[in-house]
Design a protein around this nucleic acid. Structure first.
Lengths: 162, 162
DNA sequence: ACTTAAATGTTGACTTTTCCACCTTTCGAA
DNA sequence: TTCGAAAGGTGGAAAAGTCAACATTTAAGT
C-alpha cells in the first residue's frame, strides 16, 4: 500500500481534482438532459426536485438540502416564481422564511423529468455494488466534513518578499 | 455547536447531487488555501500543478489532464503567461499546440503550495482505508465514463415538434 | 423587558465557468 | 496532390456561482 509519508501521495494524487472533473462531467450531462425537457436550469431543477420529493417545504431546509448558496437560491427561487413553477407563501413560524408550494406546472415537469434522471442515475451506478455505494456515500460525508477545515498549519510561512 | 450545521449530505438524496455539494465544499476550501498563498486561482494552479508534476508539457495533454474546458484553458494560460508563471514555446510537432515551460516563479509557488495541499488531501482521506479509497477511485472512473452518455432513451416522447 | 448577537433573505458587484462561432492546422481519403 | 473533416485554439457573450453589505426577524443572555 502506498504510504502517506512516502512520495507525495502516490497515485491517488489529486483526489479533489478528480472529483472536480467528475462533477463537471455530471453537470454537463444533467444540463443536456434537463434543458431538453424545458426551461429549467440545474439549480432550479434541484429546488423543484427537493420540494417534490421531500417533506420539507420551507426555504431554509430546502436550500440546505439542495446545497445551493443562499444568494443563488434567492435568485433561482425568484426565477421559479416568475416562471410559474412555485408560489411563495409567508411562513407563520418564522417570518424570515417562506413556504414553497409547487404549481401544477412544476409537478408536471417533475413527473416527466424525474424518471429520466432516475434512469440516468441507474446508469451511472450500474456497475457498482451495494457495498461500493455505501463506501461512496460514507466517503462523501467524510470528505464534505473534512472540507470545512481551511486553517491548515502551514509548514513554511515563507517571506512575503517577491 | 448549533444544530444549524446539518450539511444536507446524507439525507438520501441523489448521488450527482451529493457530488455537486462535495465539489462545492472542496472548491471553497481549495480557494481559501490557494488564494492565501498567492495570486493564482484554482484553474491556474491546476495547470501549474499538472506541468510541475507530470511528464506532459504540451498544451492538449495538460489541458486534458487538468480537466479544463479548452476556452478557459486558453484564457488561464494567457493569464499565467502574463503573470510570469509560464513561458510558451512553439511546438514543432504540431503548430496548433504550444510547449508550456514553468518559470522559477511557478516552481517556487508549487514548492510552497504543493505540500500544503498534500497535507489537505491527507486530512480529507484521513479516516478512509486503502480499500475504501480504491473503491472511490474506481467509482470516479466508472461514473465519469458513464457521464458521457446523454442520449438516454426517453420513456416519455410526449414532446411535440423538435 | 431590554439589549445584543445570530440567522435569514435580498441585492448588487464581481469572479469564474461555460457556450458558441470562427480561424488555423493537421490528418486522411479520394 | 487536393479536398474536406476533425482537432486545437481564440475571443466575445452569456450563464453560473461567489462574496460582501444590508434590513428584518429571531434567539439568547442579562
Amino acid at each position: 500500500m502506498t504510504n502517506s509519508d512516502d512520495s507525495a501521495i502516490g497515485l491517488g494524487l489529486l483526489l479533489p481534482f478528480q472529483i472536480a472533473q467528475l462533477h463537471t462531467a455530471l453537470n454537463a450531462q444533467a444540463k443536456v438532459i434537463i434543458s431538453a425537457y424545458g426551461d429549467l436550469n440545474l439549480a432550479q431543477w434541484r429546488i423543484v426536485r427537493v420540494v417534490a420529493l421531500g417533506v420539507e417545504s420551507t426555504t431554509t431546509p430546502v436550500r440546505k438540502a439542495a446545497g445551493i448558496d443562499k444568494s443563488q437560491f434567492s435568485k433561482m427561487l425568484g426565477a421559479l416564481e416568475q416562471k410559474g413553477y412555485v408560489v411563495l407563501h409567508p411562513y407563520k413560524a418564522d417570518k424570515r422564511q417562506h413556504v414553497i408550494e409547487l404549481t401544477d406546472k412544476a409537478h408536471l415537469a417533475h413527473a416527466r423529468l424525474g424518471p429520466v434522471l432516475d434512469e440516468r442515475q441507474r446508469h451511472l451506478v450500474a456497475t457498482l455494488s451495494e457495498e461500493e455505494l455505501s463506501v461512496i456515500y460514507k466517503a462523501i460525508r467524510v470528505m464534505a466534513a473534512a472540507a470545512q477545515k481551511t486553517d491548515f498549519d502551514i509548514p513554511i510561512p515563507a517571506m512575503e518578499e517577491e
